[in-house]
Computed example of a mutant assay.
Amino acid sequence: MQIGSIEIEVVSKDIKNMHLRILPPDGRVKISAPYRMNLETIRKFALEKLSWIEKHRAKFLQQKPVRHYEYINGESHYLAGRSYRLRVVDYAGHPKVIIRDQIFIDLLVAKDDDREKRKKVINDWYREQLKLRVPELIKKWEKIIGVEAKEWRIKQMKTRWGSCSIKPRRIWLNLELAKKSDYCLEYVIVHELVHLLEPRHNSRFKAYMDGFMPRWKSYKKELNQGNEALLS
């Protein structure tokens, strides 16, 4: 679908309401619509949201290109909201990662390991770090919100910080959250747990968020700096 100079991808799904997303890295626009909904209704929806679309697409277009890590000495990498300098250390044993002097992330790998192997070692370490932080937060907020998630899992996601599968009561968390501050991680956990009370992003959902976490909008804004509209 074309609205002015903006091309919009329209996908039909088994859903009740339309969902609009602005996707990284280049501001691609996507609308998910219920089966059998006619294109004129979808076009009207897009036109009503046009100013919002243009505003958020502009943020993507103004962004610098996403950093492409080479996993070499001197790069800045993040853990729990803090920046560390990467040091690659030649190591004959099993690959591992160590925080050194609260300044460095030491990546201990064989000297012949290529970029993809170094990336995997770092990401496996991020996964373990996130596993250490999440259980306590989920336990805390399940008690406050009055819900229970049957399980939670971690995966790499391109367009969301988290998601919630309502029927199995399963929460998914983006691996990238390992790099974010505790309160940003906590916000995503609260967001997904609240979906067990209200699946949609409607006024009821927002009222729950306001009650449980009054500063959630500021956490969301910080979380999405450079990643606009990852979590709507």
Results as ranks from 00 to 15, higher is better:
Leu177Trp: 02
Asp114Val: 10
Lys139Gly: 11
Leu137Tyr: 07
Arg170Glu: 07
Phe104Met: 08
Glu192Asp: 07
Leu177Ala: 03
Tyr187Asp: 00
Asp210Thr: 10
Arg100His: 07
Arg100Gly: 02
Asp106Trp: 05
Trp172His: 01
Trp152Asn: 07
His94Val: 14
Lys167Pro: 03
Arg153Glu: 06
Lys167Cys: 04
Arg127Leu: 03
Asn123Arg: 08
Val97Asn: 07
Asn123His: 03
Lys111Tyr: 13
Lys155Trp: 07
Lys119Thr: 06
Val147Tyr: 01
Pro214Met: 04
His201Trp: 09
Val194Gln: 05
Leu107Tyr: 05
Lys139Phe: 15
Asn174Val: 05
Leu197His: 08
Lys217Val: 03
Tyr126Pro: 01
Trp152Tyr: 14
Leu175Trp: 04
Asn174Trp: 03
Leu193Met: 14
Asp113Lys: 14
Leu193Thr: 06
Lys131Glu: 13
Gln129Tyr: 07
Lys96Trp: 08
Lys111Ser: 15
Asp112Leu: 10
Ser181Trp: 08
Gln129Leu: 09
Leu108Pro: 02
Lys167Gly: 04
Lys150Gly: 06
Pro135Ala: 10
Trp161Arg: 00
Thr159Pro: 02
Trp141Pro: 02
Val134Gln: 01
Gly211His: 14
Ser165His: 13
Arg204Asp: 12
Gly146Asn: 12
Asp113Ala: 15
Lys150Ser: 10
Met157Thr: 03
Lys120Met: 09
Trp172Met: 01
Lys158Glu: 05
Trp216Asp: 02
Asp101Leu: 13
Pro95Lys: 09
Ile145Ala: 07
Asp106Tyr: 01
Glu136Met: 14
Lys217Arg: 14
Ser218Thr: 13
Asn202Gln: 00
Ala178Trp: 11
Glu186His: 05
Leu177Ile: 02
Leu175Gln: 04
Val188Trp: 00
Lys150Tyr: 11
Ser163His: 07
Met157Arg: 04
His201Val: 11
Val190Glu: 03
Trp141Ser: 11
Lys167Leu: 08
Met157Leu: 15
Thr159Arg: 02
Tyr126Val: 10
Asp113Cys: 14
Arg170Cys: 09
Arg200Lys: 13
Ile189Cys: 10
Val109Phe: 05
Arg160Asp: 02
Met157Gln: 10
His201Ala: 08
Arg127Lys: 12
Leu132Thr: 06
Tyr208Thr: 03
Leu130Ala: 06
Gln102Asn: 15
Phe212Lys: 11
Leu177Ser: 02
Cys164Pro: 02
Gly93Gln: 12
Gln156Ser: 15
Leu197Thr: 10
Tyr126Leu: 13
Val134Cys: 05
Arg153His: 11
Ser165Asp: 11
Val147His: 01
Gly146Ile: 11
Asp106Lys: 02
Phe212Asp: 10
Tyr208Cys: 08
Leu197Ile: 14
Gly211Asn: 15
Gly211Glu: 09
Glu176Gly: 09
Arg127Phe: 01
Arg160Phe: 01
Lys180Leu: 07
Lys167Phe: 06
Val194Thr: 14
Arg200Asn: 13
Leu132Asn: 07
Gln156Val: 15
Val134Leu: 09
Ile154His: 00
Leu196Asn: 03
Ile154Leu: 00
Ala110Val: 12
Asp124Ala: 08
Asp114Trp: 05
Ser163Arg: 05
Val134Arg: 00
Glu148Ile: 06
Glu148Lys: 06
Glu198Tyr: 07
Ser165Phe: 11
Glu186Ser: 10
Ser163Pro: 03
Leu173Val: 02
Tyr187His: 09
Ile145Asn: 03
Ser218Trp: 13
Trp216Pro: 05
Asp124Thr: 12
Lys206Trp: 07
Ala149Met: 06
Leu197Val: 10
Gly162Tyr: 01
Lys131Tyr: 09
Cys164Leu: 04
Leu193Cys: 14
Met157Glu: 04
